[in-house]
Design a protein around this nucleic acid. Structure first.
Length: 758
DNA sequence: GGGCCGTCGCTTTTT
DNA sequence: GCGACGGCCC
């Protein structure tokens, strides 16, 4: 049997799977079979080492990955695995905190607040502290709070020597009180509370250290400090800890992940066996070469010698679209070609992008052309207003103290309990040290309060409504409960009254029906369990295999997946790399890794597209191809990309502005030399190779302005021409003006430009 | 308390 | 270009 487990694995994979007890670090390049190694490792532990399945914990990045891993292990061992725990850090912690509720500040039936709930609660905290919501953005404060939690700093330990720091401390403190009063935790609390509980409570810690004999962690490069702390604690005392990761695929720095944990692991476990998986089984040589050229420009990384048996392959196709609409149409055309010419299925194809907002133009094109697709993420089902309303009712039924849900539905549909009454109630509750549920119950029992009698009457009615549902819930039929909520609140009528257009009402009604159907399936599930399940699902978790359709997803969501054909769209400056990444430490390097993750999802063919102009916030503005594109050697590329010819001028100009990678990790000198060595060669080669495939824009009559020209504009001042194209009878000139003015695209006949030199 | 209308800010990425 | 929120008036 031992032979079977190791059969078909290469030498390094075998070494990893059969490594002796003690710490193991597997550095696994993309497509190197790391999931295979993990599943075989679990099987090996059970079958060869004789480990008890209940003593094994495997941590994955998504619930879907957890499900797949479990299925694969069951498949290998041919049976159900009693007690084997596979899940995300968040899910595993959530369960532990329920079991150990007696040692925590929350009850076992606490609920999990998502980002929207968090914002609502921070806003409430700000109001209570008489702080201006305009001045202190809840999102920004939450970033600080989240950062503190990821570093295991509770409110009373929070210190930051600045005025803002003091504000954060006060908000954090109140926010946390409100969470506890609501018997709720946010995502970060799941990790922080577990780590602190295990760290500070000897009895609990020893219990789990004894119980969890073997620990395995996937995607280790994307763990944050709290998660790593958990790894270190749970690994003890035997240190049977097996982690798998790839620094080059670290893309969650924004939520506190630190790939340097990989280095730290080697320091914390000096005896760790380090194994490199370098053979790639996924992609062609060309795909790998392109990806390597991109990632090689990141410094401070362990160099890996990724190789594949799949020599050669199809060249990477680069396409310059006119707009995001054109880009989407190009994708559709290629999809059609791929099906007809290469007999590929829709399911073999994925379209990736940096931001969710980009999915819109793509979706419209897919709908127009009747091409089946499925969207991962985006404005998720559970983010829809009508679903959140109904969910809030269910949550409030489950937990009377849920302040956020209470505030959401107390007057939806309208029942005459306005802002004033709610604020009065909150203030009174605060003064009496009541939770929101206690306050409501007290009013119902006739306790005197500072609220006007009419408001009290309406609140008591609302309380009675909730009490009725709680009784109904005791019957244990979720579906019946939801139907009763919809009927008694008159939610259907509300839906139609609150919609501007009839189609909108229909759409919302459709969503409600979908939610109903969902609950019907799960009708026997206890309410609390149902609520937990839906609060921990990721967008990728909903990715269903059966349907034959093209997958649309963000680069982040693509991690761990693979497709024969991959399109990466919107490869433009400001989008990939994203503008916002520029002021983050390590931001540019992370954007590069994100692009690398996208590139390495492709098995056979890569399409890279960018648009000449793109719609943002309702108006169309010019854009430039990403600096990353120029890092892919011309010999790997085919396609027309007229814009690239102008990159040299643009690059020179950008350097003079010093709007450059300002990450301390990047090596600027080498970047300057190497960024666009092949740009013009690329365009020339591409043009001759695929003459006639795509007509580049702006060909034909001679143009008055050319790139590199310095010009003067009466209003915008001096600038440099990036490029110029024919546009009808006129000429459309793209000019980079001063930093304040930025990039402009002007019609030559109206712009009154004076040519200075060139 | 509710409805209407204007302003503002926004979109990075997710458990 | 859209949704959230505040100011205004009934």
């Amino acid at each position: 049997m031992a032979v079977a487990l190791l059969e078909g694995l290469n030498e390094q994979q075998r070494a990893a799977v059969s490594a002796g007890p003690g710490p193991v670090l597997v550095l696994a390049g993309p497509g190197s079979g790391k999931t295979r190694v993990l599943t075989h490792r679990i099987a090996y532990l059970i079958q060869e080492i004789g480990a008890y399945p209940g003593g094994i914990v495997a941590v994955t990045f998504t619930n879907k990955a957890a499900g797949e891993m479990r299925a694969r292990v069951e498949n290998i061992l041919g049976g159900r695995l009693q007690g084997l725990q596979i899940g995300t850090f968040h899910a595993i912690c959530a369960r532990l905190l329920r079991r150990e509720a007696d040692h925590t500040q929350h009850r076992h039936d606490y609920l999990i607040y998502d980002t929207d709930d968090q914002v609502a609660l921070v806003t409430q905290a700000l109001n209570e502290l008489n702080l201006d919501v305009k001045k202190y953005r809840p999102r920004q404060l939450l970033d600080h709070i989240s950062g503190a939690k990821n570093e295991l700093i509770p409110p009373d330990k929070y210190q930051m020597k600045s005025y803002l720091g003091e504000i954060v401390r006060r908000v954090y403190e109140r926010y946390q009180e409100l969470l506890i009063a609501s018997n709720a935790r946010d995502f970060d609390d799941l990790l922080m509370d577990t780590a602190l509980l295990l760290r500070d409570n000897d009895e609990v810690r020893q219990k789990y250290q004894r119980f969890y004999e073997f620990l395995l962690v996937d995607e280790f490069q994307d763990t944050n400090m709290a998660q790593y702390e958990l790894v270190k604690i749970l690994a003890k005392p035997q240190d049977n800890v097996f982690v798998v990761g790839d620094e080059d695929q670290a893309i969650y720095g924004f939520r506190g992940a630190d790939y340097r944990n990989v280095l730290q692991f080697r320091r914390d476990f000096p005896d760790a066996k380090v194994i490199l998986l370098e053979q790639n089984y996924r992609s062609t040589q060309i795909v790998l070469d392109a990806a390597r050229a991109v990632i090689d420009k990141n410094t401070h990384r362990t160099p890996k010698a990724l190789f594949t048996d799949q020599i050669g392959g199809q060249p990477v196709t680069v396409y310059e679209a006119y707009s995001e609409v054109d880009e989407a149409e190009y994708v559709i055309q290629r999809v059609d070609d791929l099906r007809k010419q290469e007999r590929l299925d829709y399911r073999d194809i994925a379209v990736m992008y940096r931001t969710n907002a980009q999915s819109r133009a793509l979706e419209e094109a897919f709908i127009r052309s009747n091409t089946p697709y499925r969207l991962i993420g985006g404005v998720g089902f559970y983010k829809r207003r009508e679903i959140r309303d109904l969910l809030a009712y269910l949550r409030l039924i489950n937990n009377p103290d849920d302040a956020v849900s209470f505030a959401r539905v107390v007057n939806v549909p309208k029942r005459g309990i306005g802002k004033k009454s709610v604020e009065d109630l909150q203030r009174w509750a605060l003064k009496q040290r009541y939770t929101i549920g206690q306050a409501l119950a007290a009013l119902a029992q006739g306790e005197p309060s500072s609220l006007p009698a009419s408001a009290v009457r309406k609140l008591v009615d609302f309380h009675a409504l909730l009490a009725g549902w709680r009784e109904l819930n005791a019957v244990g039929d979720l579906s019946a409960l939801l139907e009763d909520v919809i009927v008694r609140t008159g939610y259907t009528l509300h839906l139609h009254e609150s919609s501007d257009r009839p189609e909108e009402a229909m759409e919302r009604q459709e969503n409600v029906n979908e939610f109903r159907a969902l609950l019907k399936q799960d009708r026997a599930k206890p309410l609390g369990e149902f609520l937990e399940d839906i609060s921990l699902v990721a967008d990728v978790d909903t990715l269903a295999e059966e349907k034959n359709s093209v997958t649309l997803l963000t680069l982040h969501a693509a991690k761990g997946l693979e497709y024969p054909v991959v399109f990466i769209t919107g490869i433009e400056e400001g989008l990939l790399p994203h503008l916002r990444s520029l002021d983050e430490p390590d931001g540019m390097a992370e954007e590069r890794r994100l692009f690398y993750v996208g590139l390495t999802r492709a098995m056979r063919h890569l399409y890279l597209t960018y648009a000449f102009r793109r719609m943002t916030y309702g108006d169309s503005s010019p854009s430039l191809p990403s600096r990353f594109l120029g890092d892919i050697p011309a010999r790997l590329v085919q396609g027309v990309s007229a814009g690239l010819a102008n990159r040299r001028n643009y690059q020179t100009y950008q350097e003079s502005l010093r709007w450059d990678d300002d990450s301390p990790w990047e090596n600027k000198a080498s970047d300057k030399e190497a960024t666009w060595p092949d740009a013009s060669a690329l365009v020339d080669a591409a043009r001759s190779r695929i003459r006639g495939q795509i007509q580049p824009f702006g060909q034909g009559a001679p143009l008055r302005y050319r790139s590199g020209l310095r010009v003067q504009h009466p209003v915008f001042g001096e600038g440099i021409v990036i490029e110029s194209r024919r546009s009808g009878d006129d000429e459309e000139v793209t000019i980079q003006f001063s930093k304040q003015v930025g990039l402009k695209r002007l019609a030559a006949s109206f712009a009154n430009l004076i040519i200075l030199e060139g």
